[in-house]
Nucleic acid binder design. Structure first.
Length: 205
DNA sequence: CGTTTTTGACCCGCGC
DNA sequence: GCGCGGGTCAAAAACG
């Protein structure tokens, strides 16, 4: 089981043999065009890393719920710091609202062979938590985008099987541009040869 | 001195 | 209902 970090849909039969020396895209029929820029941004390999067998990266996209734009708008700046949950013992549970931003978010999981788990993707991240994962000696770090109003989170952990692999999971779509804005106009996905692109259709009612 | 990390506590969903 | 596992908060420490 190498997909323990994300609940991949089961309609990806070839996922097992995809994890080799090629970037693998697994995406649903979601509006990839909305986040194509960051796809391209994410896919920029580090300088010097060739497509040798020593560099293996898996990239998975999954869509949990249909993304409603209004949910993005409303969740801006009301969860993180706008409302303190427990000042002392006043548990403002805010049960009526969905405090969790588990609204339809895009989840992108990377699995990269790297010694450093801090991979600079152009965004500014602030660590907000660290937890030790069950069944794994390696802790899991939680980061959040430093941009105001942008609630994109990512969690970084090491593979419990191969500690030389780093699993980076991005949650959400940035509502702003990268500090180092990179636009590949006309090119939704720049896929160098050797990279495998696969689009799977998932019926999402 | 402002900003980020650290770290334990708290919260919440889920399975038993 | 309770315990566990996982995610988040926030005060204090660390860092520049």
């Amino acid at each position: 089981m190498s997909d323990h970090y994300s609940s991949l849909p089961t309609n990806m039969p070839e996922y097992s043999n995809l994890n080799h020396h090629s970037y693998t895209y697994l995406m649903d029929t979601l509006d990839i065009s909305d986040m194509d820029f960051q796809v391209s941004d994410f896919l920029v390999p580090e300088a010097g890393t060739s497509e040798e067998d020593s560099t293996a990266t898996n990239i998975e996209y999954e869509q949990s719920n249909p993304v409603l734009p209004e949910q993005f708008d409303e969740s801006v700046g009301h969860d993180g710091s706008g409302e303190k949950r427990r000042p002392n013992n006043i548990k403002s549970k805010s049960g009526a609202k969905k405090t969790k931003m588990d609204v339809g978010q895009l989840r992108v999981a990377f699995r990269t062979k790297s010694e450093l788990e801090i991979m600079d993707d152009g965004y500014k991240w602030r660590k907000y938590g660290k937890k030790s994962v069950k069944n794994s000696p390696n802790p899991r770090n939680y980061y959040r985008c430093n941009h105001v109003g942008c609630q994109v989170k990512k969690r970084v952990e090491r593979d419990r099987e191969d500690s030389r692999y780093v699993i980076t999971t991005y949650d959400g779509v940035h509502t702003h541009e990268s500090p180092s804005i990179v636009y590949y106009n006309e090119m939704p996905l720049m896929v160098p040869n050797g990279w495998t692109l696969q689009a799977s259709q998932s019926s999402c009612s």
